[in-house]
Design a protein around this nucleic acid. Structure first.
Lengths: 109, 109
DNA sequence: CCTCTTCCTCTAGTTTATCTAGGGGGGACG
DNA sequence: CGTCCCCCCTAGATAAACTAGAGGAAGAGG
């Protein structure tokens, strides 16, 4: 594990997809939103964020469009595609299944 | 992510530590136990298992001893050390914190 | 006008966990 | 004796996330 783990490996795609499912947003905003909603428990490093966005776009789960941010900055706005929504469903189910399984193990007396 | 994800990345150490905390066990048994308790949701590949055990031993969180299995096979029995128990506490707390954070994100309407 | 800060994007290189895909030895049992 | 199962182990590939940078452009403050 890296010195400072701020995210459960493998859940970043899920977190991004879920965040974009509620509202299209630029990349920096996604990171802010995740951090804020998780009450600072999750930190999305930029070096993780942008490669992840690129990955999701390449798989056509999100779509990008240049625009202007609320602060009048040049920003890339991402939104979920239809297949992205399906992927989100799948990943949420996976998360549920696997995290429940971990909890099962941890709760053994 | 690898083609078939059978485990949440980063949780294997935690699962092993927890399993050994309840009962010392040989490596193969640990994998069986995890699979069984998780009702087949978690699959521990041998190529993940043994490197993980070696890693934990190197960090002195577990201790190994050769013995004979219930089937009269030569087997390496692992048990938790004192620092291993502390590590387990830490990792359980981390898991709780991070998985709750993920759930927070996923539950947003 | 100039500088500094904040916003926002991006990349190269490293680390590390896990998987794939093997090999091997030694009991037990037909 | 052959075969299955138990149990250990490893090399190499894959891929996610981190570290540690760069840089451009808007707005604020002097």
């Amino acid at each position: 594990m890296a010195p400072s783990m701020e995210i459960l490996q493998g859940t970043l795609d899920l977190l991004i997809l879920k965040t974009l499912a509620l509202e299209p947003m630029h990349g920096w905003g996604v990171a802010q939103r995740i951090q804020q909603v998780s009450r600072e428990a999750l930190q999305v490093q930029q070096g993780s964020l942008y490669p992840a966005l690129y990955r999701l776009e390449r798989k056509k789960w999100i779509r990008a469009e240049w625009g202007a941010s609320e602060n009048n900055r040049r920003a890339k706005f991402y939104s979920l595609t239809k297949t992205g929504r399906q992927q989100l469903e799948r990943e949420m189910a996976d998360w549920e299944r696997l995290s429940s399984a971990v909890t099962l193990i941890l709760q053994r007396a």
